[in-house]
Design a protein around this nucleic acid. Structure first.
Length: 506
RNA sequence: GGCGCAUUCGUCUAGUGGCCUAGGACGCGGCCCUCUCACGGCUGAAACCCGGGUUCGACUCCCGGUUGCGCUACCA
């Protein structure tokens, strides 16, 4: 496919939720795979719902995830501006064209009047069957319309849908979808109150002008796709109409309904890529980034939510996704986010991550507590912790014992492992440690295991209490990995204290 | 209510008329490895929504229903 151009076109009405992120991702993968362009357009045609900071949030989120924008808000391009609120004049021109061609008309009905009609008539729809009884340029004479406009009356421009036609949408994911035009209402395309178009018009005009070839968006747009097809036709652009692909929705993990921004993080997992504070309510919502997810993991999770490769492979880098992705392997039904699997994915990526990269998470905690440690040891500790953590911010709790001596000892473990003979064995071990010059993993292990064998103590009788003494509980990596990082001095200090403090069981 | 889309293990899904005794992954259970935890290896339980057709043969095709979801705004 040549000259592929796709767009991600969110509204700045708050934080971008992961459903939106996935839409952006699929667009990006499709663009990259075909050597095309990925555009970012901000659809801020609803002045009432505009939320300050939302646009910056969207851009930062995409950047964090590695979804690159080739053209659009933040990067510019030859089709600028890319913010719909800055394209008013452009839309007005096409509104007039539709009006002149008799494809649209002006309506003066107020929201209150429409509300009244909806109450009066069951299943009221503003369409060919009802427009004759409403207040619009079809029922009013031309002079009246003119004077009302001159008078400053608010009006809207509605599309004039001819009933009884089967309108066909050829969807790349779902195949042919047919809807009868009779059930499409005369949608508002433009409102004089703020001189802005609604989504439907702005979307079609911009996609056409920006030479979009493929519209990849959420399934919630499928019902209005026929309206969009009609608009392309009315504007004379039917021959260059983009292809459509409607993605299945991301559903709430439990219960029903599609995932929404309002779900915040009440679901047990974040629904936003980055932490977000609602500027109106001050309410804070968690973000994947702050919860310790790695961007590569989030991408991988999202990619597989609604798409499946032709193999059983599950781990994908962005480059692999670009190679493998295809719209015809996108599933048709909605997907629920599985927190447990997300955890697993993140763990996989955490384990792959270089220890030095992970060290920064520990460094932060150490600095906050004023603890000094060598970079080498921090990296080593991070390496051991990453095998046991699911999220980057769990690293510290898995590694803190390397830097902070136990204050207390896990009671259950003490009861099980600290027997009558243990203090004596530990005292002997203390002496053994004292005699070791080279405290490296290999050397310490060699000497201690040899000593255990000679004494005939058994590994468990020595190692388990030693672990309790040095770590404080029954967890952690290989014992001599721990002593190596702790060093001789600290190992002896902890062991001595444990012998003094831990009570013998039974 | 109307219209549309969907419907395979708890979850994400494979499956395009015979390869299906329905496969993989997460999660869950067991065993092994082992100084602990985690990892890893092996292994177990776990699904074709229901009826009708079509066909020699349906998870796969058609029709109807169920259920879920979406849309039905001067929101996107």
């Amino acid at each position: 496919m040549s000259n592929v151009r796709v767009r991600f076109a969110p509204s700045p009405t708050g934080a971008l939720h992961i459903g939106g992120v996935r839409t952006a991702l699929y667009n990006y993968l499709f663009a990259r795979q075909n050597g095309g362009k990925m555009l970012l357009r901000i659809e801020d045609t609803d002045s009432n719902r505009f939320v300050p900071g939302a646009e910056e949030y969207i851009i930062e989120s995409l950047k964090w995830l590695g979804i690159e924008i080739d053209e659009g808000v933040g990067v510019g391009g030859e089709h600028a501006p890319y913010r719909q609120s800055e394209r008013k004049d452009i839309y007005r021109k096409y509104v007039d064209q539709l009006l002149n061609d008799g494809k649209a008309y002006i309506a003066f009905d107020t929201p209150e009047q429409l509300e009244a009609k909806r109450n009066e008539i069951k299943n009221f729809q503003y369409d060919a069957t009802t427009r004759g009884m409403m207040t619009n340029s079809l029922t009013l004479d031309a002079e009246e319309v003119k004077s009302r406009i001159a008078n400053g009356d608010n009006y809207v421009v509605r599309i004039k849908i001819e009933p009884g036609e089967e309108v066909e949408v050829d969807d790349l994911i779902r195949g042919k979808v047919v809807i009868n035009s009779s059930i499409i209402d005369d949608k508002v395309l433009y409102k004089s109150a703020d001189n802005l178009p609604t989504y439907h018009l702005a979307n079609i005009v911009d996609d056409h002008l920006m030479e979009i070839t493929h519209v990849i968006r959420g399934e919630e747009w499928l019902p209005s796709a026929p309206l969009h097809v009609l608009l392309y036709r009315f504007l004379g652009w039917a021959d260059t109409m983009p292809r459509f692909a409607h993605l299945p929705l991301l559903l709430k993990p439990q219960g029903n309904g599609k995932l929404s921004k309002r779900d915040g993080d009440k679901l047990g997992f974040p629904v936003f890529p980055l932490e977000w504070t609602d500027p109106k309510t001050g309410e804070k919502s968690k973000g994947y980034r702050e919860e310790g997810y790695l961007p590569e993991a989030v991408i991988n999770i999202l990619a597989l939510l609604g798409w499946h490769p032709s193999s059983d492979q599950e781990m994908f880098t962005m480059d692999e996704l670009i190679k493998e992705f295809s719209l015809d392997r996108v599933s048709k039904s909605g997907a629920k986010f599985d927190f447990e699997k997300g955890k697993w994915f993140n763990h996989q990526y955490l384990e792959k991550k270089d220890n030095n990269d992970l060290a920064v998470y520990l460094k932060k905690e150490l600095d906050a507590r004023g603890i000094k440690a060598t970079d080498e040891n921090i990296a080593k500790a991070a390496g051991h912790a990453k095998a046991r953590a699911n999220f980057a911010n769990e690293l510290w709790e898995q590694a803190s014992f390397f830097f902070i001596a136990p204050e207390s000892y896990d009671e259950k473990t003490a009861k099980k492992r600290w027997k009558a003979e243990t203090p004596e064995i530990m005292s002997q071990l203390y002496t053994v440690f004292e005699g070791i010059e080279d405290f490296s993993l290999e050397n310490t292990e060699k000497i201690v295991t040899k000593w255990i064998e000679e004494k005939g103590y058994g590994m468990g009788a020595v190692m388990n209490p030693l672990r309790l003494a040095l770590v404080g509980e029954s967890k952690g990596p290989h014992m001599f990995d721990i002593t190596e990082i702790l060093g001789k001095e600290e190992t002896l200090r902890r062991l001595k204290k444990a012998i003094e403090v831990i009570p013998v069981s039974e």
